[in-house]
């Protein structure tokens, strides 16, 4: 089986409902109709070269925007991380001092540790999403509605998810707290416990992430080749064996995407930490993205250079994954072209 990625091989994405042949003839007609106009044009330099130049002209606005707001700021952050700057006064060049401080900063290591926890535990969304997708991949009455409702958490803003779970965990009256109290005799204030808080937030993050992975797998399961399944059934493959040897290989594109979005989601985790704990108690639930914001823009911070240095580290971690993903995608692209 061929490698697959977000780009996939050249083949219509299952979006449109119009049959391609119909479009072809219709568009031919449109093309012929506009022919009359084009024939009146003189042969000019532009006409000679338009096929070569058009892509560049079309690219200019998008690329310009993207350069100014995304690409250049990345390099600017690298540069800023060498300064001591409070965002108000003069910048002062201090070389690698920010990094030196960072590597001697307990809060940095706490954040880093939590980021690793996020990365590892967030991966649970992939099998869980697959599990729910398999559970829901039936053709019974109302199943479409069930699928939508299971997917629902993903549509909600993380801010709302955070509030929902903050209520869920709230000591003395939160649903989770009371369930625990009822089951074990004493409740736990998850968000106040330095050892549990990160797990509590990750659980909240998993809720929409599982939904996302589920929908990816549902789409993937839809496209699984029925003939292969039948053939495998004839060979008496069942249950887990069937899943492992027949289904999962066909779901590779969905798995790849699920892993990509989950890794990105885990490293970007900011919203939930900010809403649910503000990094507390005493910084135990910080992640790099939150610590960076805290240092650069929060009430007690405003160390732009230090914040930029944290962002650079986060970027470098992400770079490891990005290069992997991109390498795979470019590879697919090459083979697809």
């Amino acid at each position: 089986m061929r490698g697959a990625g977000m780009s996939g091989p050249a083949r219509p994405v299952p979006l449109g409902n119009e049959p391609p042949e119909g479009i072809v003839s219709e568009q031919r007609r449109a093309a012929r109709m506009s022919l009359a106009n084009t024939e009146t044009q003189r042969r000019t330099w532009w006409r000679e070269n338009q096929q070569r130049l058009t892509p560049y002209i079309f690219l200019i606005p998008g690329v310009l925007f993207f350069l100014v707001y995304v690409i250049i700021p990345i390099f600017e952050s690298f540069w800023l991380s060498g300064f001591d700057w409070d965002g108000l006064g003069e910048k002062q060049w201090i070389g690698f001092a920010n990094y030196q401080e960072l590597f001697d900063d307990d809060a940095f290591y706490t954040s880093l540790k939590n980021n690793v926890l996020w990365l590892v535990l967030y991966m649970f969304a992939v099998p869980a999403g697959l599990g729910i997708a398999i559970f829901l991949n039936q053709k019974v009455r109302l199943i479409r509605a069930y699928k939508s409702l299971f997917f629902f958490p993903f549509v909600i803003s993380q801010v709302v998810v955070g509030l929902i779970f903050a209520w869920f965990y709230a000591p003395n009256f939160g649903l989770f707290y009371l369930l625990l109290e009822w089951a074990t005799g004493s409740g736990i204030a998850v968000l106040a416990d330095p050892d549990l808080v990160t797990y509590g937030i990750i659980a909240a993050g998993l809720w929409p992430q599982i939904a996302y992975c589920m929908i990816l797998y549902l789409t993937g399961l839809n496209a699984v080749d029925p003939e292969q399944i039948e053939a495998a059934r004839l060979d008496a493959a069942k249950g887990f064996k069937m899943l492992w040897y027949v289904i999962l290989p066909q779901l590779r594109p969905a798995t790849f995407m699920a892993v990509v979005v989950t890794v990105i989601g885990a490293l970007r985790s900011f919203d939930l930490v900010s809403i649910m704990t503000d990094g507390g108690p005493f910084g135990s639930s910080r992640v790099l993205s939150f610590y960076m914001y805290e240092q650069a823009l929060s009430e007690y911070g405003y160390r732009m250079g230090y914040g930029a240095a944290i962002a650079v580290i986060l970027f470098l971690i992400m770079m490891v994954f990005i290069s992997g993903f991109i390498w795979k995608m470019v590879d697919d692209e090459r083979r697809g072209l």
Binding site: E76, I264, G307, F315, M318, I326
Partner: peptide, 12 residues
């Protein structure tokens, strides 16, 4: 650019 953690863009 799309995969970048946006914190790195924040200050600039």
């Amino acid at each position: 650019g799309n995969f970048v953690p946006f914190q790195i863009l924040m200050v600039p």
